[in-house]
Design a protein around this nucleic acid. Structure first.
Lengths: 254, 254
DNA sequence: TTACATTTGTTCGTATGTATG
DNA sequence: ACATACATACGAACAAATGTA
């Protein structure tokens, strides 16, 4: 390790050890699925204390290269650090890229059989029952229309639907607060579609105008679908931007 | 800490210490911007060794609640763990959600003054010069057209453009390999736009057809724009899906 | 600028607990 | 039941960075 030779490495020992182990994994000496040498082995080979060896191994865990389990050992799980990219947001509200303060003007509510047009969006049939909300999302101040929304709320949370004409902000947020559930995952699909007649009318578009259809499915940690929303935006006003950043971090547990 | 009382806590000591500190930060006892007690303080208060205190503090670092600096102390940077959402991808290729294996058929290359139509996409003028590629992206096997692409390559990497009629896969990847740069950030903007005539022709669409215009700017770690690509997709075939997952992780350094 | 006390970083040693196979 | 291997926890010492007198 060149502790004090002419090519002395002044980096911490644990870092040097981690570097060697990382290189070995990258070279294929310890392929994913195999075990890394034990702490004692590392102590012996590099002539460091167990503390130092553990510090080195911790770096490999942080890099997503190994997993450690008491009694079992260190399992190699990747050859190289997963240099993934991520689009992060502090709040789900950043998914909706329109004005922060919006209101949903409820046009109709009911308990419809979802038409075939939106069946795919809701997903498989046996999710239980749904309560539908049809509405128009407006900028709260200027009342400028943003999108036409068709929202299907899981019947478990149907109470949020009753007797409201206005919903300030996002519906998922209200459900989170009222029922104490947490949205753990959102699937979003963007595509271009002909505006439904009622959407075109509400948005002040021609009857045959195209629009952007954004479908979002909100799931809790157990995978239960909380709400599905389908939002039609006028094509000429639609913009969707995102920024992906490189991250040294390991990918999600998925 | 109830080490052995009737309400003994069998969790590790460092976890108990971390929990207390976390609660104090959450309560506002140590607001962001202030210093957490020193290691010695924590050792004294909880009657634990320095090792245990450091292990506890490490948890707070991992949770994104504090930052530590040698010689300075532990700075509180957040009241609560940032429970953000993230859309992660292992490779940038997942940004393009079309068939994995595609080829860009180059239709024309040159060194144009970018028209006013795309000036905004390229960004501010003094980025240096650009080399343009006009092409059609096809599924490699079936030769099915995917999108019409207008690509502006930073002149520093213009070599990739010379004398090619076909580019397999994404261009950014070729630049990464050839020049040893790394894409650190990508900005993407999706909007609906009328197809340019040449795009409509190449994609087999009507002359006045609408399409989806996806602009991507690739930046390296220094913020230099490597390439800008503008891709027009036929509206009826365009789909863009993404999945956001809740993460306990701290937010990016941005 | 220098000198010094403070605080975290690194590294050793040692011992015991606990999950795994 | 037992050996193995990682987890937790104590103690001690010196190094390096920081802030201040």
């Amino acid at each position: 390790m060149n502790a004090d030779g002419p090519f002395a490495d002044d980096r911490p020992r644990y870092q040097q050890v981690a570097e060697v182990l990382r290189a070995r994994i990258a070279e294929g000496l310890h392929p994913p699925g195999t075990q890394l040498p034990t702490e004692s082995d590392i102590c012996a080979e590099f002539e460091v204390s167990r503390h130092t060896a553990r510090e080195a191994l911790r770096r490999l865990v942080d890099a997503g290269l190994i997993q450690r389990r008491q009694g079992s050992g260190s399992l190699v799980i990747a050859r190289e650090a997963q240099q993934g990219y991520a689009h992060t947001m502090r709040s789900l509200d950043e998914l909706f890229q329109y004005a922060a303060d919006t209101t949903l003007r409820v046009l109709a509510t009911g308990r419809p059989l979802p038409g075939p047009d939106v069946a795919d969006d809701i997903g498989t049939a046996d999710e239980g029952e749904w309560v539908a909300i049809e509405g128009l999302r407006l900028e709260t101040g200027t009342q400028a229309p943003i999108c036409f929304s068709l929202i299907f709320v899981n019947a478990d949370f149907a109470d949020v639907v009753t007797e409201i004409a206005q919903i300030r902000g996002a519906i998922y947020r209200r459900i989170e607060q009222r029922f104490g559930v947490e949205v753990a995952e959102v699937e979003q699909m963007i595509r271009v579609d002909k505006l439904p007649p009622e959407a075109a009318r509400a948005l002040g578009q021609r009857g045959r105008a195209m629009g952007v259809r954004v479908t979002r499915r909100y799931l809790d940690a157990a995978g239960r679908v909380i709400i599905v929303s389908i939002n039609w935006h006028p094509a000429d006003r639609f913009r969707y931007g995102m920024r992906m950043r490189r991250e040294g971090a390991r990918p999600g547990r998925g």
